[in-house]
Every structure is written in structure tokens, then in C-alpha cells.
Amino acid sequence: MKLFRTISLGLLASALAIGSAAAQDKTIKIATEGAYAPWNFTGAGGKLEGFEIDLAADLCARVKVKCEMVAQDWDGIIPALNAKKYDAIMAGMNITDKRLEVVAFTRPYASGMHGFATMKNSPLAKLAGTGERVNLDKDPQAAEKTIEAWKPLLKGKTVGTQGSTVNSQFLEKYLKDVVTIREYKTTEQHDLDLAAGRVDAIYAAHSSLQATLDQPEFKDMTIAGAGVSGGVLGRGVAVAVRKDDTELKGKFDAAIQSAIADGTIAKLTQKWFKVDMTPQG
């Protein structure tokens, strides 16, 4: 029975594949989303590129380990870390209290603003505070006043955002009763829907919005309203590791510390974001 032999050989081979994967686990696997330009995205031909891909290579060289980047849907990126699909996440993920309940974070390696973007001809383009910055931790009153000022314009509009992010949490907390929130799997999808007119505005990290603006198809899009940080928006972007993986956390902490100190982070953020996004303090 040739067929039978083929099947049993196939099963044996896959069993061996599992076994060998278990044996050689010295490579550190880092998950990223691959759909969040310029943090991490997939370039022509399907290669992972972006700020975090460069940074991971630099950090791993400092720690002297071999690293492998894998793409993973944002939706399940934290559960899959805890299910041991990989060892760390570098995917533009902000430190928040909610996430700290299930994973551990290193010290932040970048920080930035979050805000709205809309089409230039939309009434929402006139949202207050464009170009300004407010921080929910340092100056909560000013921040909440800014948000309050947005409400009349936003009333009844539909806003797209990526699900299970600090951005969706921000909308849920401050604007839930004012706008209809539509959650997307990736930022690329809500960009498409903003251009298609299915949503009136999108809410995302300024860094990611800026990258979209630079594309010819999105020349009519604009960032609107003040940039917000802190509070539910988190305390900077960091590497997430499993809670019990203190060894890896320690290594990455030290590596990030030295990458900040010698200006590598400043150089890489300049390269990818055109501004210095080195975390303060």
C-alpha cells in the first residue's frame, strides 16, 4: 500500500518537525504586525520592514542573541504571546495598565501623539487644536477641555479605529456617546475606509497617520485636532514579554537603555518618522 506508506511517512515527518522546533528554541522569536507603517509593515514582495524591524536587529545584536521576526494579526497578538507562539512583541504597542495585567513590558523605546485624521474637505478638518499637544497625565484639565471642545463637531459622526488598541480605548472612554466607533483589524483597513468615505474620521497614532498622508492616494487626507498622549493612551511604546520571562525583559531593558544613550533610537526614529521620538524621562 503505497498510499498508506506515504501517509504514515507524512505524519512522522510532521511529528519530527514539532519535535525539532521544540529542541532548537534558542532563537528569540519577536512578533510584529506587519501592517502598521512606518513602525512595521510589509514591503513589495512580502518582506517585513520598518522602524521596529531595524530596532529589533539592533537590540538583538546588543543582547547577542539570534532573533526572528514573525508577522501576527494584531487581534490575537497578546494571547498568542502567552500561548508561547513567540517570545516578545514589538508592534508599536503602548504600555497600559490593562495590558500589564497579562504581560510585562520593558522600558519604552519610543513615544508619540495620537489624534484624528479626516479628509481635507470634511467639516471635521476644523477640529480644535491642530498642531498642538496635550497630555492626559501632565495636564488633565487642558486635555479634557480640548476633548470637550471637539464634541459638537463630532456629534453623530462615524470614527474608524483599530480594535484592541489604546486608540479604541481612548474613543470608548471619552467619545463613546458622541460618535459611532467602528473597529478595524488593521490601520490600513481604516485608511481605505476613510478614503472610501465609509467613516468620517479615523483615530490613530500620529506617526502612522503621517505615513499614510505621504502616499499619493491619500494626499487629500489631513491630521485634525490636537495630538493627545498619556492616560489611556499609554506610557510609550515598549517590548512586551511574558510575565514570567524576567530574564528576557532584563536583557531588553538594558539594550534599550544603551540604544537610547548612544543615540541609536534618535537616529532610527529620524529615519522612519522624520522626527525624534526618543521617550522622555
Binding site: 501592517a35 510589509t42 512580502g46 508577522a71 490600513e188 481605505l192 502616499q215 491619500f218
Partner: peptide
């Protein structure tokens, strides 16, 4: 991935 990267779904 390609659709997202090129915005040509």
C-alpha cells in the same frame, strides 16, 4: 498584505 501595503485591494 499586498492590498494593505499598496492600498490597491
Amino acid at each position: 498584505i499586498a492590498a494593505g501595503s499598496t492600498r490597491r485591494p
